[in-house]
Simulated assay, not measured.
Amino acid sequence: MEQLTGVTIEAIDLAAWAPAALEVQAVAFGLGPHEVAVRLPIVGRHALQPGVLALGAMARGRLVGFGYGMPNRRDHWWSTVIEPYLAARGHEHWLDGVFAVTELHVLPEFQGRGVGSRLIRSLCERSGLDRSILSAIDAETPARRLYRSLGYQDLASAVRFPNTERPYAVMGARLPLRDPSAP
Rank of each mutant, 00 (worst) to 15 (best):
E2N: 11
E2T: 15
Q3L: 13
Q3V: 14
T5Y: 06
T5R: 15
G6K: 11
T8P: 00
T8G: 02
I9K: 07
E10M: 06
E10D: 02
A11N: 09
I12M: 13
A16E: 14
A16P: 02
W17C: 08
W17G: 00
A18S: 15
P19V: 13
P19E: 14
A21G: 15
L22P: 07
L22W: 08
L22C: 07
E23Y: 04
E23W: 06
V24I: 09
A26K: 13
A26E: 02
V27K: 09
A28W: 02
G30A: 09
L31Y: 15
L31S: 06
G32C: 07
G32N: 14
P33L: 04
E35L: 08
V36S: 03
A37Q: 14
V38P: 03
P41R: 13
P41H: 12
H46N: 14
L48T: 12
Q49Y: 09
P50L: 00
P50G: 01
G51R: 13
L53Y: 05
A54T: 08
L55D: 05
L55I: 13
M58W: 12
M58C: 08
L63Y: 08
L63I: 14
V64I: 11
F66D: 00
G67I: 12
Y68M: 07
G69V: 02
M70P: 01
M70L: 15
M70C: 06
P71Q: 12
P71T: 12
R73D: 05
R73A: 15
W78V: 15
W78K: 11
W78L: 11
T80W: 05
V81A: 02
V81C: 05
E83D: 13
P84F: 14
P84Q: 14
A87F: 09
R89G: 04
G90W: 11
H91L: 05
H93E: 10
D96E: 15
G97C: 03
G97S: 11
V98C: 02
F99K: 06
A100L: 13
A100M: 12
E103W: 10
H105S: 13
V106C: 01
V106M: 03
V106R: 01
L107V: 10
P108I: 02
E109P: 10
Q111P: 04
G112W: 07
G114I: 10
G114T: 10
G114K: 13
S117R: 10
R118T: 10
R118P: 05
L119E: 03
L119T: 06
R121C: 03
S122A: 15
L123S: 15
L123A: 12
L123I: 14
C124V: 11
C124P: 01
E125T: 13
S132R: 11
D138A: 11
A139V: 01
A139N: 02
A139L: 08
T141C: 09
A143I: 09
A143K: 12
S149C: 07
L150H: 11
L150E: 01
L150M: 11
G151P: 08
Y152N: 04
Q153G: 04
Q153L: 01
D154L: 07
L155I: 04
L155Q: 01
S157I: 14
A158Q: 15
R160H: 12
R160C: 05
F161L: 03
F161N: 04
P162G: 03
T164N: 03
E165P: 04
E165S: 10
R166K: 08
Y168W: 07
A169F: 00
G172S: 00
A173N: 09
A173V: 07
A173F: 06
A173H: 06
R174S: 06
P180W: 03
S181H: 09
S181C: 01
A182H: 13
P183S: 12
